[in-house]
Design a binder for these strands. Structure first.
Lengths: 214, 214
DNA sequence: ACGCTATGTTACTGACCGGTAACGCCCTCG
DNA sequence: CGAGGGCGTTACCGGTCAGTAACATAGCGT
């Protein structure tokens, strides 16, 4: 509404092409798979064309890398959000994470983790995607360990690994049998965490968010 | 050594082309991914050619389906083998399965479950592969439930789901961080099973194969 | 020896893919 | 106003893909 001509129908300005391309790639890569989607289709879905795509991303592989980098960034942000919502309360952060897991497995479609899927599709060991994927999953696992350690769990690595694998298993198996074990993973996580929960004498707050069984 | 001419150098007869093609497809699909491998490469790896391939499999999709059917068959056979090795002893069958899991995750490469990988790659909901994949994973889950029920576990579905997801998670995450949590899944399984193991008054034999912690 | 079937060989089609060249447009900034 | 940069458009390249046609060959049973 600033310096625009008045009677112009205000075509609601599109985001810049790079963002549109990345958004389109995200949608198509996730829905159909990386190898199954051509750059032309991405450009078209982004309301632009191949040339513009190649001006922003030197190659399809670069676009894939950017796509995964974006996904990884958002995945990492979850943890910061959690520690921001429940500062100094690791137990509440854990519960928040379980809710996040629950939400992801019910709301999001049946395509699982886009990053893990990319790991399946991009198998060339020297592909730039590999590093992004491996680093992301490792960070995620380490974040879990740190969280459980902070919350005073007796064996944080063990619990983190188990929780990690349960979640990963849920996200892959929802692609095979959508109404299978995956939808019950949140319940599993809660009872598992309750079993291994730290005893009361730890430093965690233990106010309202003590682990609950269903 | 029957009616073959004596001085003929006995070129060690190859298996029939169909088997060779299926074996080559298996190797290449698993190693590089289904979409990443062309039919020509498969024919060549099978020491034959595209024409012969298309005489046995009407299309690449049919070959994929045959590939997955074979894998599913072998996966199903595991259970029969287990119940054959430990007839009437479900607890021993469970332990045998855990050893099988252990073996798969250490011996086999870092490519995870070929069937789950196929589920990631073949996303067209009407692809013949989908049915094979979904059915297989469901059978597997149900086998686990049956086994735990037979062994007298109090909540066989819960335990089976948890075990199922742990295994699936291990097989997918070994493709992301190969020396990560996946390699410790057997230990997890054993302690998990020990925790939920049926009390002594069940019908299971409980001789030598009582659950052991490490 | 015959004929049938399975296989090998070569060449081809049409479609699609990733990637590029060349040109023209429009907007903005100076 | 002019210049330049971002963007759109079209056409194209070489390569690869799935799938097919036509023909040659080898093995086998009869």
């Amino acid at each position: 509404m600033a310096s625009r001509t008045i009677n112009q129908p205000a075509v609601l300005p599109l985001p810049p092409p790079r963002e549109r391309i990345l958004a389109a790639a995200r949608e198509l890569f996730y829905r159909h798979g990386i190898r199954a989607v051509g750059v032309e289709a991405i450009a078209e879905a982004a309301s632009t064309n191949k040339m513009t795509l190649y001006r922003h991303f030197g190659s399809k592989d670069e676009l894939i890398a950017a796509y995964l980098t974006e996904l990884a960034k958002e995945g990492d942000d979850i943890w910061d959000q959690l520690s921001q919502e429940h500062p100094g309360d690791p137990q509440a952060q854990i519960e928040g994470w379980v809710q996040y897991v629950e939400r992801i497995l019910t709301d999001c479609g049946e395509r699982g983790c886009a990053i893990a899927n990319a790991a399946v599709e991009m198998r060339e060991f020297d592909h730039p995607a590999r590093q992004i994927i491996d680093d992301y999953k490792m960070r995620k696992r380490n974040r879990l360990v740190a969280l459980f350690r902070e919350a005073g769990y007796a064996e944080p690595e063990q619990v983190a690994d188990e929780v990690f694998l349960l979640f990963e298993g849920a996200r892959i198996s929802i692609q095979c049998c959508s109404s299978g074990p995956a939808v019950r993973v949140a319940r599993m996580l809660r009872s598992l965490l309750a079993e291994h929960a730290p005893k009361a004498h730890t430093k965690s707050k233990m106010q309202k968010t003590s682990a609950k069984r269903s």
